[in-house]
Design a binder for these strands. Structure first.
Lengths: 118, 118
DNA sequence: CCTTCATTTAACCAACGTGTTAAATGAAAT
DNA sequence: ATTTCATTTAACACGTTGGTTAAATGAAGG
């Protein structure tokens, strides 16, 4: 990560398939580390550290109740990530058919040194 | 990354603020490495490598035209990322008011060993 | 040709990420 | 008190990342 900014932390957390699997599991229901580890073919310490990453990204919260530590999905940062990505929606969605030619034209003439058809 | 799966590559690419800045610039118009480097206070080789990361994630395509190599935004992978995140939308958006209590109830009773109010 | 300009590759470095196993912690149960 | 169980921390290995500067590449232009 190297960065501490929120969005970077979130995207970085999402960049790992194991962590995405964990979030998916937590979308079903809160779970303990042991429960999360079961289907994951990695050691419990490894899962524990994935959870720490998710927690730093504020994607989960953790509760303690005696022996057990529960993890709960916190989706707010996902909203931020979705919002960021949404700024690019015009580049792929329905309007693509309508907008694409315009964009192509812009791209062909704009900013490219001497219009060398990049 | 360590992983080669597409979604991981995309999220990993997005996890760096410099690369997000590059994508934002490319949302305006295609650009050369030099143009992209100008506002970025890092060296051109560094930018060149960021571009390679974005290219591996299929977030940009590159064209060559004589001396210049242009970069163009390719938003399709962003759609995939958005789609992935969207599965969690119910956890944060409007229905949150309506759904949250249900979820809370589910969470309190579900899967947690012996209902220890995690 | 020889130079210039845009970009990439190479070599290096410090920091980080992800996994492991073994030890430590801390609450529960006997 | 001692043991047991869930989890975390420590110590280690190893590959990756992101930055640097210096050299290589490759097309354009004199």
């Amino acid at each position: 990560m190297a960065d501490t900014d929120q969005l970077s932390a979130v995207f970085s957390a999402l960049a790992d398939p194991t962590r995405r699997a964990i979030l998916l599991a937590l979308a079903e229901h809160d779970a303990t580390v042991t429960e999360l580890t079961a289907p994951l073919s990695i050691s419990m310490p490894a899962v524990s550290r994935h959870l720490k990453v998710l927690e730093r990204a504020a994607l989960i919260s953790r509760t303690r109740s005696g022996k057990w530590r529960g993890s709960r999905l916190q989706a707010a940062p996902l909203r931020d990530a979705a919002d960021w990505i949404d700024r690019y929606r015009r580049f792929w969605d329905s309007s693509l058919t309508r907008l694409a030619p315009v964009q192509a034209a812009e791209r062909a003439t704009d900013r490219i040194p001497d219009n060398r058809e990049l």
